[in-house]
């Protein structure tokens, strides 16, 4: 098991290293460099002297070869947690992300937990009672959940709750807590607001996971080891949870790594609609304004999240399925 864990960790670090290149390339991608944009903007206010530009160029190492620039950027991140400056907000990128990333992660984890807590039991029910009335009902609801775009659900929910209950469900905090320091009250307020984006972004994921769980379990239920366990005198509930569910859930675990970024990105549209203080809207606006240090850093951060998610799902899969963990020992 130890070897398996170490190997996975090594792969994850390698991937993050590779991802950092991609993020850096994205930062470098727009024509000219970010100073051009910034100078243009400053130029609107008044003339910018050549000398001032030269100072800025040197400060960001823009006159040096690209690998030196990469090295400066990555060592700044690793050694000082310095992601560069956002020139739209005129603040360090680290500060901007630092505000929103924890909320994004919290929202994502809550969404995944919600998705699994809904999808796994429903999927099990749907498979065990295949072709029953309940199975059909769940299937119809599932396809509806898959088919309706989540931002539409968000809009409808906003409309309904505002019009009929006079309650504003947008945002993650009530007005009086937005700028308040963290406190017990603020956490409670967050939880009160969080269930709506969690339910909305989790909807599509829940629907597809139900389908996957149902299909996996149907395959397993017919396997002889299930009949063998039944022939040993296990009760139905006990044997289904112990044997086929355990096997059927393994492929689901391996999708966890993919679910994490999907939740982060599909959350973006919903986050904009519900005006949530997560990284999604920030990334969108940074791309629109060519705020490349912010955009690159956000992409880097989200990619690292993905790699971490994949790592976690790999480790869980290894724990759940001995065949995978033993391949490395």
């Amino acid at each position: 098991m130890m070897r398996f864990v170490l190997r996975r960790l090594a792969y994850a670090l390698l991937t993050i290293w590779g991802v950092s290149f991609v993020a850096f390339i994205i930062i470098q991608l727009p024509p000219g460099d970010f100073l051009t944009t910034s100078i243009e903007r400053m130029g609107d206010d008044g003339a910018v002297g050549e000398a001032q530009i030269a100072v800025l160029r040197e400060q960001y190492g823009l006159d040096q070869p690209i690998w030196v620039q990469y090295f400066k950027w990555i060592s700044g991140i690793v050694l000082h947690g310095d992601f560069g400056q956002s020139f739209v907000y005129h603040r360090p990128v680290a500060e901007l992300i630092g505000q929103r990333l924890p909320l994004t992660i919290a929202l994502s984890i809550a969404t995944i937990v919600f998705t699994w807590a809904m999808a796994v039991p429903i999927g099990i029910y749907s498979a065990v009672r295949q072709y029953s009335l309940g199975d059909y009902a769940v299937t119809i609801l599932g396809f509806l959940g898959l088919a309706i775009p989540s931002f539409l659900v968000a809009l409808v929910l906003l409309y309904v709750s505002y019009n009929f209950f006079g309650q504003d469900v947008g945002g993650l905090f009530s007005e009086r807590y937005i700028d308040a320091p963290w406190s017990f009250g603020k956490v409670v307020d967050l939880l009160k607001h969080m269930w709506i984006p969690v339910a909305i972004t989790g909807l599509a994921g829940t629907a597809s996971l139900i389908r996957v769980m149902r299909a996996n379990l149907l395959d397993e239920l017919r396997k002889p080891y299930v009949a063998a366990a039944r022939a040993r005198g296990n009760s139905e509930t006990r044997l289904i949870v112990k044997y086929p569910v355990r096997v059927a859930i393994a492929p689901l675990l391996s999708t966890l790594g993919a679910v994490l970024p999907a939740v982060v990105s599909s959350g973006e549209v919903v986050a904009i609609v519900l005006s949530l203080q997560t990284t999604g809207p920030l990334l969108l606006s940074s791309l629109q304004t060519q705020d490349m240090y912010l955009a690159g850093s956000l992409i880097f951060a989200v990619s690292v999240l993905t790699v971490v998610g994949t790592l976690i799902s790999d480790l869980m899969l290894g724990w759940a399925d001995p065949r995978i963990r033993h391949r490395y020992s």
């Binding site: 002889p224 080891y225 355990r246 065949r323």
Partner: peptide, 22 residues
């Protein structure tokens, strides 16, 4: 259930699939 495995036990055809892999 009390009879299964206690008074009547069964061995299946495929040893590859009649035992749980996990």
């Amino acid at each position: 259930r009390e009879i299964r495995g206690r008074e009547i036990a069964m061995v299946f055809q495929e040893p590859m699939t009649s035992l749980s892999p996990v």
